[in-house]
Design a protein around this nucleic acid. Structure first.
Lengths: 235, 235
DNA sequence: ACGATTGCTATACACGCGTGTAGCATCCGA
DNA sequence: TCGGATGCTACACGCGTGTATAGCAATCGT
């Protein structure tokens, strides 16, 4: 039913329209929507999106049917772009974000993901769960190879680190509402530069001087339920 | 000019109106706005707020002039309530949030702060900066008393930990969009229970097995600019 | 070469929003 | 007792939004 920009079922031979951009208007509309959603959040109006794509507003309805459908297609596009980027490149959760922020297009993609999480949409939750699963898998492997310390709660640790990292970026995004589409790269780079040393330091040494807090908590949780858990203990 | 709920300048003798709640309608309106903003974000309509307070919608304009003025007053109220709560109670940044989440009213207050940050409003930025300043002050004191490890970048560490903690809560909030005003406490308690062990573990031991990453970064930053910084080094 | 489908624009509709205005009841001070 | 301020409601206006419809130009299949 839906005709993609390169669907071979109804493609004749050569490209039918050498547009100003080499993309189909539909694809340009989708990319413009991704950029607008990243820049302004999902409250961006369809007229703004259409104006950014250089077309009329009604064309969005003509191509996608509704704003929600357009957004769903943006979610799919970003999700798949992230997936391919993940499989083709290295996927070290620590600097995956930094890698994503390199190209401008990737920067917009990153911010789109942050907006999705910030918005509370199912797509955002899906992103988070994927990131957590990836982090957990990478963590297990890194623990096995001696890079990371083992944890009493591996998936809990992965969940914590992902939510905190993404959340920190969302906070930094919210702290700069005047952000422009052109300085995604700049702002992200400055942020990473700002938090690089503290985060590496935190991940290397922690912040507590000794293990009294951890010991106290473990004793507390042991007193609460002296049965399950605390079996894989080798911190 | 502004008539507070207990302003003695125009108070006769006894309470003039034994309303269903013992608060002024104006104060009830303000509290209802705080709750609605916490529950739905700042897109909550004035009609919703008025309905929650059990009054008409136009009354908001009558009392506050505009929705923005109402929100500003909510910001002030929450900020001052947080300030008093901070000074009167203990202020350990680690469990300050947990303490805030105890009472229902405090839970709504916490979520209001999170919404402010999420929204990107100046009030949210102010909250964050205050939290960072507090955390930095507490951190300095805790380092002096041997509870926390010293840092190569103390304020950077405080900034990182605050933004990540608050951001993690925002992500958790966004992951539960169906949140109801009545289970602020429940959701927050479950979240804290979920992240307690991983965060204590992280803050105690870090995640890296050794200090190669930190050493590499320090060497890199030293090679980049061999002059300033790296003087207060005693990690 | 011609009909039909496609790409696209322009305009209008319905809705929810914040805001403004008119009016009513009540309470207080002189 | 009475004038005026106060607390509050009901209703209407303008605006921006997503959505729907009508129509035009071009391209493609046959």
């Amino acid at each position: 039913m839906r005709i993609a920009e390169a669907d071979p079922t109804s493609e004749t031979a050569a490209v039918p329209d050498p547009a100003p951009s080499d993309l189909t208007t539909r694809a340009r509309l989708r990319d413009a929507a991704i950029e607008c959603f990243a820049a302004e959040g999902f409250g961006a109006s369809v007229r703004t999106i259409a104006a950014r794509a250089g077309v009329s507003a009604g064309l969005i309805r003509h191509h996608f049917g509704s704003k929600d459908a357009l957004r769903a297609e943006c979610d799919d596009a970003v999700l798949e772009r992230h997936r391919t980027l993940k499989t083709e490149g290295l996927e070290s959760p620590a600097n995956a974000m930094a890698q994503l922020a390199e190209a401008d297009e990737h920067g917009a993609m990153l911010v789109y993901i942050l907006r999705s999480v910030q918005d509370g949409s199912p797509a955002g939750a899906s992103f988070i769960e994927h990131l957590i699963a990836d982090a957990a898998a990478y963590s297990e492997q890194a623990v096995a190879s001696g890079i990371l310390r083992p944890s009493l709660d591996p998936v809990g640790r992965a969940r914590l680190m992902v939510t905190q990292s993404v959340g920190g970026l969302i906070v930094m995004l919210s702290l700069h509402p005047e952000i422009d589409l052109t300085d995604f790269k700049t702002v992200l780079a400055k942020t990473f530069e700002q938090i690089a040393l503290p985060s590496i330091e935190l991940y290397t040494n922690g912040v507590f001087a000794d293990s009294t807090y951890l010991d106290q908590y473990l004793a507390y949780v042991e007193a609460q339920s002296p049965n399950a858990q605390s079996r894989t203990e080798q911190s």
